[in-house]
Every structure is written in structure tokens, then in C-alpha cells.
Amino acid sequence: MNIKISALMLGVMYLGVPFFLGDNDYLIGLVASALIIAGVAVAWALLGNLGGMVSFGHAAFFGVGAYTSAVLTMDYGVPVFVALVVGGVGASLSSIFMMPALRLRGPYFALAILAYAEIFKILATEATGLTGGAGGLLSIPSLPVFAGVDFGTKLGGYIVILNIVTLMLITYYFIRRSSYGLALKAMHDSELATRIVGVPATYLKVVMLLVSAFMTGAVGAFNAHYINFLEPDYAFSGTWTVFPIVAAIFGGYRTLSGPVLGALFIYLVDQLVFKNLIPQGHQLILGVMLAGMIILSPSGLLPVITNLFTRKKADNKRGEAQHA
């Protein structure tokens, strides 16, 4: 079921969106920005769903990825597409500083990560030599022309971020299916049972944190080259934590496509509707959605919708469902 929704969604994103919106730079830009949120939301959900960790600090990975890639391309002439990957690696490396927090239980981990994110933000503002300080970095190189296609355009950028998100979803899918995924799933409610058969629980959590940080960093790096400008308050902004959390919770953070659909919906509604209605403070709606979802349906909207959908077919599909 989930896979079908993901495939349908990707089909629409790859064919429908460029076909209908391809010549409207404003709209395609909006969808691309929504996909940036979606990328972080998927990374956040991977850590939450598989690793069982709620993070309030993904802005740190986003910022580190963005600055790593920007500095490498500007000061060392590294090609942009290579720098995107290295941006992810940089974010993974920065997550190593957070590893001690893995010893902490749920809420304490969340708070510790929040503190780490604040520390990263302060450090970025203070390390003026590297990050340009509060003044920021201007004219970060755009995405290049590659194989005859100019990825520096709005549509080109859209294709690149769509590919990044798709790769992330595929990775997520395979991790979840693998024995790692099984062990992680079992760890939620029965950690002792998994450890006693030889599962290195902490190591698996470390891997999930590294993967999630890498994904977030790569998306942050993409964003830097997409908008060509960075300053610490922007790159490490709490927005990069808030939007993805709302998107993932809203869409359903235990599903594959939920965070992406959530991000598209939340971001587009915010930009197209609420921003016009309430020029200042339109993120109020995000808070309302987040609080509402946690109370009414903590597992998100997508599972609710798919449940309604599958219940009708439940009788003749029961056999199949057990294998899915």
C-alpha cells in the first residue's frame, strides 16, 4: 500500500509537475522549496521511526551541510555535485559530537539535541573566518550545466532535489526492509530481547543518526546552491527543524511517503494561503497543526487515509496484507 502511494507520488512529481508547472518559475520554485523541507522531513522521520529518536536539532545538520558545501565550492573550487555529497559527510561528522547523547532516554535526548543545535548556531555565527559571520556568504555557485542540461534554472534545481529525495526514499525503504530495519523496529518495545540475540543496539542507533545527518546535510547543501546565499541565522534557523517535524507528524512519520506529502501540503498551504492572509506570524498555523495532530492522530494523516481505503478491500486482501 505504502509503496504504491510512494510510486504514484513520485510519478506525479517526475512527470506531472514539470509538465504543468515547468514554465512557471514561481510555482516550480515553491515546489522545489517544499521538497527541501520534504528531504529534511524524511531524514527526521527515518531517525524517529527506525532509530526511535525525536530530534529538535536537525537545523544543525542542515546548516553544517550548507556551509560545508558552500565553502568547498567557493574557496577550494570543488564541483558543486561533489560538494553536495561532501556536505552530507560534513553533517554526518558533526553528528559525531552528538553521539554521547545517544545514552540518554527519549525526552532527554530530544533536549540535548536541541542544545547541540543552539551550540552549532552560535559557533557558526562566531566562526566569522569560515562562515562570513553574521554578514553571510554571497554568490555561492549555482548548480552547474551537466550533460547538456542547465541545473541552475528553477526547473533544473527542482529535478535535482527531486532526485535527492527519491534516493533518500529508496535508501529508507531498503534500510527498513533489511535485517537492520527489523532489529530497529524490534528495539522500540523490546530492546533487551534484541540485544540478547546479539544486536548491537547502540551501534544501530549511531548508524541511523549518521544516515539521517548525512541526508539532512546533503539537502542543506543543495539549498545553499539553489538560493546562492547563506547566513548563520538562516542556515541554522529553527525553521529547518520546525517545518520538517510538522510535515512528518502531519503526513505520518512512520510511513515512507507521509513526510513528503506532509511537506508538500504544509509548505504550499503556508506559502500560498496563510502567508497572504497573515503576513506576520503565519507559522502560527504550523503550531496549531502540530498540536492538533499530536492530540487527534499522532500517527499522522496518511495512515488514517490508507486505513479508510484498505478497510473496504480488507476481506479479499487479507492474505496479501500479511506478506506486505
Binding site: V54, F56, V242, I245, V246, I249, G281, H282, Q283, L284, L286, G287, V288, M289, L290, A291, I294, I295
Partner: peptide, 12 residues
């Protein structure tokens, strides 16, 4: 997560 959301509501 809930109170985080309420914080966003109040700030905005």
C-alpha cells in the same frame, strides 16, 4: 512535540 507546537503558536 505538543508543547513545542504550542510554543510556535504563542510566538507567532
Amino acid at each position: 512535540i505538543l508543547t513545542f507546537g504550542l510554543g510556535i503558536v504563542l510566538t507567532n
